[in-house]
């Protein structure tokens, strides 16, 4: 799976958790927090993405990602090493 595809998966789950973002055009440097996701929302989005990618990693390993692009990159790395 490519990093771009992971980016799309994150966006899909973000829209599922925050339906208000249905029409929003996501940018790589968007931070989930700035888009209105609270801490539970962010955990949900990451957990859903990890499930979609069938990764077996703790949520805490994604904490250092500052924006969606970094999160996608981090998950891409994990997917390559699993």
């Amino acid at each position: 799976m490519t990093k771009d595809r992971i980016f799309e998966i994150i966006i899909g789950h973000t829209r599922e958790v925050i339906p208000e973002l249905q029409g929003y055009r996501f940018q790589p440097d968007d931070a989930l927090k700035d888009l209105g996701a609270n801490s539970i929302d962010r955990s949900e989005i990451v957990a859903m993405t990890i499930e979609s990618l069938a990764l077996n990693i703790p949520l805490t390993e994604t904490a250092r990602a500052k924006n969606i692009d970094e999160l996608a990159g981090l998950l891409y790395e994990k997917s390559q090493s699993c």
Partner: peptide, 8 residues
């Protein structure tokens, strides 16, 4: 697959 349990 317990590790996928949703945080909520």
């Amino acid at each position: 697959r317990l590790h996928f349990v949703r945080p909520t």
